[in-house]
Amino acid sequence: MAPPEKKKFQLSIRFCGPKCSSCCMVFSIWGILMLIVLGILFKVKTVSLFEDTDDSSKTGTNCFIAAGIYAGTLLLSLCQRKLNQNRPAAPAHQYAMDSEA
């Protein structure tokens, strides 16, 4: 009885397909990079971003925290990718092998 339960558990963990997880990964990487850069720019009080904030130091910190959240989603999407890769592939050559045996 144990193996089917385990399988069901694994299925429920993998909630993103291969395309979805890759897409989330790309967006997460972009989010981390861009929010870190934005955070630094707010910290050094770049003039172009003046219209966006009253307290640039606090906004800079907010950017870093949001980048942290995206680091979390990056980890999540990497896990999903891994699960997708480990998933047994469709039995593409199974029949051919059977016939040779």
Partner: peptide, 23 residues
């Protein structure tokens, strides 16, 4: 930028979603 990103700068959680929408 003004409508979406600008709205999120006050709060990190909001910024997370604002950036996602903006992207």
């Amino acid at each position: 930028w003004d409508m979406v990103m600008h709205a999120g700068f006050g709060n990190p959680a909001l910024l997370f979603f604002a950036w996602g929408g903006w992207a």
